[in-house]
């Protein structure tokens, strides 16, 4: 096994010939790199590119490698890179449990086993017994935790955060932030977050790149 972690190799994103983002970095397992910049600086585009869905109209150069494997030509579903947005984006037509089951990898086989795994994940996030609930009826903090658990059940090898905490109110923000970064450190997952909030960068505790 070669290198571990998320490597952005001379990654450059440009629009209409104007360079927006240029990054060359290795994010090691459990490390969190923060990219800061004003809105319109291409932060979200950077994450879309790494996730494998570059928006039309942008040109991309360089490579994305995860644990030594070149991801550049792979579609998003083959990259094992999870993403959390400012909005939780729980699927509104599925129950909370079905949302988590959507993320759960297919190698967990059998209805009972899958259901048990979802229940355990809900319990870990303090959402016991909420599997049948309509996501629209959850509180902001519950939604954020459900979205996090859905993403973790897909066993991502890297994690992207797009202003993931900015919509939560101050009390909740610290709690969810700690949950995400602690989990990432424990699981040894490299994290790349983009934000305009200095407190997010401080909580991540890693390097900070300013655009």
């Amino acid at each position: 096994m070669g290198e571990r972690g998320l490597r952005l190799e001379r990654l450059e994103i440009a629009r209409e010939g104007r360079r927006l983002v240029a990054l060359d970095a290795l994010i090691e397992p459990g490390e969190a790199l923060t990219v800061m910049g004003p809105s319109g600086s291409g932060k979200s585009t950077l994450l879309s590119v790494i996730a494998g869905a570059p928006p039309p109209g942008f040109s991309v150069a360089g490579r994305v490698l995860l644990d030594g494997r070149d991801m550049t030509a792979l579609p998003p579903e083959a990259r094992r890179i999870g993403i959390l947005f400012q909005e939780e984006l729980l699927f509104p037509h599925l129950s909370v449990g079905a949302n988590l089951a959507f993320g759960l990898r297919p190698h967990v086989k059998g209805r009972a086993a899958r259901r048990a795994r979802v229940e355990r994940a809900l319990a870990e996030a303090g959402l016991e017994g909420m599997a049948e609930r309509d996501p629209a009826t959850l509180s902001g903090g519950q939604k954020a935790r459900a979205a996090l658990m859905r993403m973790l059940l897909s066993e991502p090898a890297a994690l992207l955060l797009d202003e993931a905490f900015s919509r939560l109110d101050a009390a909740l923000r610290g709690q969810i932030r700690a949950l995400v970064f602690d989990t990432a450190r424990r699981e040894g997952v490299p994290v790349l977050q983009v934000t305009h909030d200095e407190a997010d960068a401080a909580a991540a505790g890693g390097r900070v790149v300013r655009l």
Binding site: G52, P76, R79, R80, I83, P92, P106
Partner: peptide, 27 residues
Amino acid sequence: WDARQALVARTLGAGPGRALFAVRLPM
């Protein structure tokens, strides 16, 4: 429609077909 929903589904391991039939069309 918020295309980030499709991106979320894809990063969770769903192929383009599943993202269409299990997420976008029901919504």
